[in-house]
Simulated assay, not measured.
Amino acid sequence: MTTQQPIRIGLIGANIHQGWSPRAHLPALAAHPDFDLAAVCTTRQESADEARAAFNAGSAWNDYNRMLADADIEAATISLRVPSHYEPTTAALRAGKHTFTEWPLGRTTEEAIEMADLARERGVKTAVGLQARANPAIAHLRNLVADGYVGRVMTCHVRLMREGVLSRDSGRTWQRDNELGAHTLTIACGHTIDALCSVVGEFADVATVVSTQASTWHESDTGQDLPVTSPDNILVSGNLQSGGVGSVQIGSTPWAGSGYRMEIYGEEGTLVAVSVDSPQMQQVTIRGARGGSNELQDLTPAEELHLAPEIPGGTAYNVGQLYSRFAASIRGTANGDALPDFDHAVELHRFIDAIRQSSDEGQRVAVA
């Protein structure tokens, strides 16, 4: 938070009736003192006007190119379905706007590389929506490991098992297509493994299974049974660059999931984090033991790790945390260096490519 003038930002994908924006970006920006929600844009003027009124935005647009031509707008957020990220993101970069795009950055790694290269060429700041690593509890775990709480990390594991509804309306069944880039491997696994790596460091290699267990979804409003090519279960094991070993299990199950759990075991201690869902969505409880004790004790994130203001609805808070880091990056102040930018997104895209390659080839693969 700052006494400087707020950064004027425009949000592309501001429909208040569906998607991620009304749950996360719109409330986060409306509450954030570092930003002025200067503009909102949807494909229809009526829905843009609704978003403007609901979140007190400065202006409403039905054409993002016209919105981006406004010289008073300094930054842009792109919160759309993954296949639609590329065009408005490149338009924002070419317009010289600092740009925040949701994860996955692109439908493919090639798209992500092109956007990261363009951002570097234009000299603008970028952010990608990997907000799990901005969760105060995950940031606290990262600091604890870096400060030697567990000593050398020997082994770690993270698991996220979610309810995966097999009956969906036609507005959600598009995610069944693997080629569109929005599924359990890219989204749930991407967020979860990125948070793990932010704490324990990167993987050196992986051996994986990427599987589609639910081969059909029922489309509730049309009555059709549709074929599914998107993966819904991912298993990853590998060596960390630091010398330890790690494993990951991500699953979308037909019925009740068991939530999220991260475990880190070192030569001098243990850390455990649990939540009802991914730390991208929810706050996390952390516990630890060290110094010869086998009893886990509650640990509380340091107050300075809470960068965002209180935001109505728990889902928006960690997105607000990223916006705090985005503002710091734009202004060149402290906390900006910890922001996941487009170059970081490319690295994660490549990691996911390695996970898929290992599964396809049935062999261990080095992580670039």
Rank of each mutant, 00 (worst) to 15 (best):
R142T: 15
L29G: 11
L296H: 12
L240H: 00
G181K: 00
E202G: 14
G244V: 14
L307F: 08
G288L: 13
F55C: 08
A132L: 02
R176H: 01
R356D: 14
W174L: 01
P254K: 10
R52D: 13
S359L: 07
S215M: 08
N233D: 11
F351D: 14
L105F: 04
A316C: 14
E121C: 00
T216Y: 01
T108P: 05
T99W: 04
C156L: 05
S358I: 04
H183T: 00
A39Q: 04
A207H: 09
T315V: 12
D298V: 13
R122P: 11
K125F: 00
H344G: 14
A204M: 04
R356P: 09
I12T: 05
S358H: 01
I311A: 15
G223E: 13
I330V: 15
E295A: 15
R350Y: 12
T186L: 02
R122C: 12
G292K: 05
T99Y: 02
R290P: 02
L235C: 08
H85E: 06
L185Q: 01
A69D: 10
D337F: 04
D360N: 13
N233T: 02
T253W: 12
D34E: 13
G336K: 08
D177L: 10
L37K: 01
D205W: 06
P88N: 06
V200N: 07
M161T: 07
D337G: 06
L226E: 06
S167R: 11
V200E: 01
S247T: 06
T216P: 02
V284C: 08
L180T: 00
V248Q: 08
P6F: 11
R52C: 05
A57K: 00
C156K: 04
A112P: 12
D49H: 05
L226D: 09
Q249C: 12
S59G: 03
W174I: 03
L68V: 09
A116N: 03
Y265Q: 12
V199T: 11
S167E: 04
A354V: 14
T222I: 12
A127G: 10
Q363S: 15
D205A: 15
M1S: 06
N318I: 00
A256R: 04
A328E: 03
R66M: 06
S21C: 14
Y149D: 06
R356A: 15
I250E: 00
L26E: 07
A182E: 03
I78Q: 03
L348Y: 10
P340G: 14
A132T: 07
S84C: 12
H306N: 14
L166A: 09
T89M: 08
V276D: 15
L11C: 04
T285L: 15
L118V: 10
Y323E: 15
E268N: 15
C189M: 08
Q283I: 11
R162Y: 10
H140G: 09
L339T: 09
R152V: 09
V199G: 08
A51Y: 02
S329G: 12
R176P: 02
V165P: 03
G251Q: 07
W61I: 01
Y317T: 11
L299E: 13
Q213R: 10
V158E: 00
I73Q: 01
N135P: 07
E303R: 12
A38K: 00
A75C: 06
A95P: 10
C197R: 14
T315M: 14
N233G: 04
T270C: 07
I78M: 06
D49G: 11
S211E: 08
E111C: 05
C156Y: 00
A146L: 07
A92V: 03
P6G: 04
L11M: 07
M154Y: 12
G10W: 00
S47E: 01
